[in-house]
């Protein structure tokens, strides 16, 4: 399956997905409570150390920060102007910590293990009116049809390019949504034909 997982055998790779999500949640909350910059930097250092320990590279760590870099810079500048530059450093250091922690979760956990974790947790949501079987079917269907729809999007784009319409969002989207709706009729039929009762 396509995900951001990096294979490995470290203790974080072997840890259960649910435990890692819980740990991230607790550590993330702590990072928001703590107001001592030294603790944030200590956390940053420890988290960075975990990357090589888990067989990941510093390049992997940098890849967690890079997509958000311009936001971090903008935040730093805003804080430096409206407040103090020290607060700017604090805020972006806390951001970096959260991104790197979340990155550890994403890089060491297969999407399929996450889904298994979610499916195990779903029965606890039953009192809220959540039907675990339905959520799990919707998750599987979405994963199955992302590549199918990506392929169809590519086909529609190519067809419109031939007609000189490649820059028209409307010409791309209308056939795509109509096909998706027709497909959902056929898929629903196929699911029911295989004995599924909602």
């Amino acid at each position: 399956m396509f995900d951001l997982y990096r294979p490995g055998t470290s203790f974080l790779h072997r840890a259960p997905a649910g435990g890692k999500v819980l740990a991230l949640f607790v550590l993330g909350t702590l990072a928001f409570i703590v107001d001592d910059i030294r603790l944030i930097f200590a956390g940053l250092a420890l988290t960075l150390l975990l990357y090589p320990v888990c067989g990941l590279t510093l390049k992997n760590a940098w890849a967690q920060i890079r997509p958000t870099l311009w936001i971090l810079i903008a935040i730093f500048i805003a804080q430096a102007i409206f407040n103090t530059w020290q607060l700017g450093v604090f805020v972006i250091a806390r951001f970096g910590l959260l991104l790197l922690l979340a990155g550890l979760l994403t890089l060491t956990t297969r999407a399929s293990d996450m889904i298994d974790g979610i499916e195990r947790g779903l029965p606890f949501l039953r009192p809220l009116g959540v039907n675990p079987a339905k959520v799990s079917l919707a998750l599987s269907l979405a994963l199955r049809f992302i590549p199918v729809l990506a392929q169809i999007t590519r086909e529609v784009r190519e067809a419109q390019r031939v007609r000189g319409l490649e820059n028209s969002v409307i010409a791309l989207a209308i056939p795509l949504f109509v096909r998706t709706l027709r497909m959902s009729d056929d898929i629903a039929d196929a699911i029911e034909a295989r004995g599924y009762r909602p």
């Binding site: 039907n131 079917l137 919707a138 269907l141 979405a142 992302i146 998706t180 497909m183 959902s184 599924y196």
Partner: peptide, 19 residues
């Protein structure tokens, strides 16, 4: 209540947004 077609449409619109 969600029938089969509702579930399929939910999954397909999520997948389409992703695609």
């Amino acid at each position: 209540t969600l029938n089969t077609r509702d579930i399929v449409m939910i999954a397909l619109f999520a997948a389409l947004t992703a695609a």
